[in-house]
Simulated assay, not measured.
Amino acid sequence: DMNRIVTDYYSKILPPERQGEVAHRYVLGLYRCMKELTERFPEILFEGCAAGGNRFDLGILSYFPQIWASDDTDALCRAEIQTGYSYGYPMSVVSAHVSSCPNHQTLRMTPLETRFQVAAFGICGYECNFCDMKKEDFDAVKAQIALYKEWRKVLQTGSFYRGRNFSDQGSVLGSSAGNIQEWTCVSEDREKAVGFLMQKLVSPNTQFEYYRPNGLNPEARYRFYNRSLKYNVKEFGDLVNTVAPVHIRQDSVAHNLIAKFVKMDGEAEDFCAYGDALMYAGVKLKQAFGGTGYNEQIRHFPDFASRMYFMEQMND
């Protein structure tokens, strides 16, 4: 790929009989520089990036153990991008970052948890201004980093499995594409696994959803669970007035004060099942919000929402 980029460049400045030779020497020279740098400074972690070209070059991976996947850090696009990379590369070489919203390239707003969960299946990092971050988001980031450290070995060295994906019927940005993205990462001994489910857009009256992992030991018994999260009451909009004793105007001082102290509990999934049941029957998830009623048994799952699920083998 790099050879093609360099060849295209030299085709504009050199006669045809010299183009291939010079381009080949250029690439070999670049590899020699990388070899020299990594051998001379073994304590430095270098990251590859083609600055707009075809980024993932196998030759560069001989020297740089990770590559910046794309400047497009929008979580929706990244879910498709990282799925595409997984056909040829392990996720342990894909750098993926949690960035601010609105996203700098798409201006799309996606939940902070979704941005983290997509990035967690690669080499996770943050490119946010923590000085400008709200306290609740800052606390969420601290919890995310602790979670990533706890499951990093599974996520970076485990086997990566694709389930349903946005590209089933075209690009994620197309109207005919799939609406659900599924990933599963399983440890080498198959004792632990991390699952991922993301939704593109909400459709009315589609509260039912399932998650189906891959790669588990069919004869082993697993505990299947998720993180119990809390949600901002402002995400429910004017529906707050269905339970408030007085009328709450949107974005008023009262509304912001309530949102500061009142959080909506998210659903909890926690049960035990054998690997074959999880893989072949799948997990019927808690019912999603469907226009009326909300409690801790309802799945808060708006546009671009996602979940991480954890599976741990039980020894009893």
Rank of each mutant, 00 (worst) to 15 (best):
T7I: 08
S11R: 15
K12Q: 15
L14R: 14
P15G: 09
P15S: 12
P16R: 14
V22H: 03
V22T: 12
A23K: 03
H24K: 14
V27D: 02
L28Q: 13
G29R: 07
L30T: 05
R32S: 13
E36Q: 07
E47I: 15
E47P: 00
C49V: 07
N54S: 11
R55P: 05
F56L: 11
L58Y: 07
G59A: 04
Q66G: 10
I67E: 10
I67H: 04
A69C: 10
A69R: 06
D71V: 01
D71K: 12
T73W: 09
A75C: 12
T83E: 08
Y89W: 14
M91H: 08
M91Y: 04
S92W: 01
S92C: 11
V94N: 05
C101L: 00
P102S: 13
P102H: 09
N103W: 03
H104A: 11
H104G: 09
Q105K: 15
L107G: 01
L112S: 07
E113C: 01
R115H: 06
R115E: 03
Q117C: 02
Q117I: 04
V118P: 02
V118S: 08
A120L: 01
F130P: 01
K135E: 14
V141L: 05
A143V: 01
K149I: 04
W151Q: 07
K153H: 11
V154G: 08
V154L: 00
L155M: 05
Q156L: 14
S167D: 10
G170E: 07
G170W: 12
G170I: 07
G174V: 03
S175M: 13
S176W: 02
S176Y: 04
N179P: 01
V186A: 06
E191R: 07
M198H: 04
M198R: 01
Q199L: 14
Q199A: 06
F208D: 14
G215P: 00
L216Y: 03
P218T: 06
A220E: 05
Y222S: 09
V233Y: 06
T242F: 12
V243Y: 10
H247P: 07
H247R: 14
Q250V: 04
D251P: 00
V253K: 15
V262I: 13
V262Q: 10
V262H: 09
M264W: 07
E267L: 01
F271I: 13
L278N: 02
M279N: 08
Y280T: 13
L285T: 13
L285R: 15
F289N: 06
G290I: 00
T292Y: 12
G293V: 08
E296M: 11
Q297T: 12
F301V: 00
F304E: 05
F304W: 04
A305E: 05
Y309P: 02
F310M: 04
M311I: 02
D316Q: 04
